[in-house]
Write a protein that binds this DNA or RNA. Sequence first.
DNA 1: TTTACAAATCGTAATGATTACGATATGATG
DNA 2: CATCATATCGTAATCATTACGATTTGTAAA
Lengths: 135, 135
Amino acid sequence: MNINEAIDLLKENGYKATGKRKDILNYFADSDGYRTAKDLIKFLEKKDDAVSFDTIYRNLHLYNEVGILETTELNGEKHFRMNCTHHHHHHFICNKCGKTKEIEVCPMDEVTRSLANYEIDGHKFEIYGLCPTCQ
Amino acid sequence: MNINEAIDLLKENGYKATGKRKDILNYFADSDGYRTAKDLIKFLEKKDDAVSFDTIYRNLHLYNEVGILETTELNGEKHFRMNCTHHHHHHFICNKCGKTKEIEVCPMDEVTRSLANYEIDGHKFEIYGLCPTCQ
DNA sequence: TTTACAAATCGTAATGATTACGATATGATG
DNA sequence: CATCATATCGTAATCATTACGATTTGTAAA
């Protein structure tokens, strides 16, 4: 997802596109990988753009709700990345830099068969390790 | 893993098998699903067995390190369950009761081929939903 | 079995991330 | 450009987890 799509999504859901919200979107749009709340705070502080915790966390949750960000837990910390809007896929995630690579394989069709009486709401398939650059 | 295997594992690693450690092991051995630190604390309080936070968290980490417990994040909370010692497999996890069902499918062979220059350290494949009992 | 001692636990204080709140500022709409 | 609901600010409160000095307890040797 790019910034414009994200802003549209905000407006569609009745939320304002404020300066702070755009700053946060810019950060994730340029990241191309998983980042923590702390990463974001550091980034905003560097550009002399003091942001209240309230604003950070409120918007991270909001973005997750409306589908702008997706989230996962890496090494005990919550991480966020821009949501992928195209076809269904999964990710390799680098433990060092947080960058991701798309994985096309998804075994859910096979799995569903063996869970006949179960109600399936979601699934997670992630591969962890080091990307070529971080090795 | 059962309690005796867990105690052996502790001793092999040079740790003592104390009363509190056995209480904690008993809880997870009887659970057959994912439980939080809070669940454990509640359980121990009920049986009039006051346990310090220090003891709870120190041992949860220890058990995770030596391979007695495995951990995952569910609905924003860290959960633990007795580790499976037999063949490699994954889990369906009930969002309500935390109980698990084994899934034999694992797509890692297929995936490895598409990650030639990546160093793979681990992977996670989990299916979430409601078990037949909780629907 | 007793002793000795390192390891484990206790009770509580400290930490750190996240959430909450009243006051102020700001985007969107007419 | 005026209005007002929404968003943000600065800070305080909360909650889970971690840390610490004092005390207790397994373990293994005597």
